[in-house]
């Protein structure tokens, strides 16, 4: 098998971004660590077949798949209502915040520990994964629609509408949270 050096040279600089993507999909640091390690091993083993100029979309697609595998396994293991099911219709009104905790209790706990003014991160954590991932790739990683489409295995039009719906969700969640904060203050 090829030596890791060439692969490392190309792939290791993207590890922070890969971890960020896995973290936001899994909302758990330790699960994200495992997913990133698994993804890097898979990518390394498949590296001979990589024929592109850009490693990032290829690598992130593998990271994303590893994260989804982890997510699926966790759901099956916990045998609970998934986030997508908890929210009536992917584009509908998000349910109450605490409903999300039924999906993965660790997620909500992790987010509650975050800074109070970090509302935007908590709102992001509440997004359904299909919207969350495009928002993370766009707003945190600053990727273009074409690259996001490649990573998520969709087309640019889908990225556009998911991103728009994700933003709509975020906006409503933030407005709701801000409203709640104000009423608490009074």
């Amino acid at each position: 098998m090829a030596s890791p050096s060439r692969f490392e040279e190309l792939a290791l600089p993207h590890m922070e971004a890969a971890f960020n993507l896995a973290f936001w999909l899994l909302r758990s640091r330790s699960d994200a660590e495992d997913a990133v390690q698994e993804a890097y091993l898979r990518a390394f083993r498949a590296f001979d077949g990589f024929r592109g100029d850009e490693i990032r979309p290829w690598l992130f697609a593998i990271v994303r798949n590893a994260a989804y595998r982890s997510l699926n396994l966790r759901r099956r293991a916990a045998n609970v209502v998934s986030l997508d099911e908890a929210l009536p219709g992917a584009g509908g009104e998000p349910g109450p915040a605490f409903q999300i905790a039924a999906d993965e209790p660790s997620a909500e706990e992790a987010m509650i520990g975050a800074d109070e003014r970090d509302l935007v991160r908590r709102a992001l954590a509440e997004l359904p994964p299909a919207f969350r991932e495009v928002v993370v790739l766009r707003e945190i990683e600053g990727l273009g629609y074409r690259e996001i489409a490649e990573i998520t295995g969709t087309v640019v039009g889908t990225v556009m509408s998911r991103l728009a719906r994700g933003r709509e969700h975020l906006r409503k969640t933030l407005a709701r949270k801000a409203g709640k904060d104000q009423s608490n203050a009074m």
Partner: peptide, 28 residues
């Protein structure tokens, strides 16, 4: 909203992750 997200930044990576992955790659 985009600016706030960008400002909140990436979730910081555990410092030992790169060495852990390098080791796993070397073993593989």
């Amino acid at each position: 909203i985009g600016r706030s997200l960008a400002a909140s930044g990436r979730e910081p990576m555990p410092s030992e992750l790169p060495s852990r992955i390098r080791l796993a790659l070397a073993q593989a």
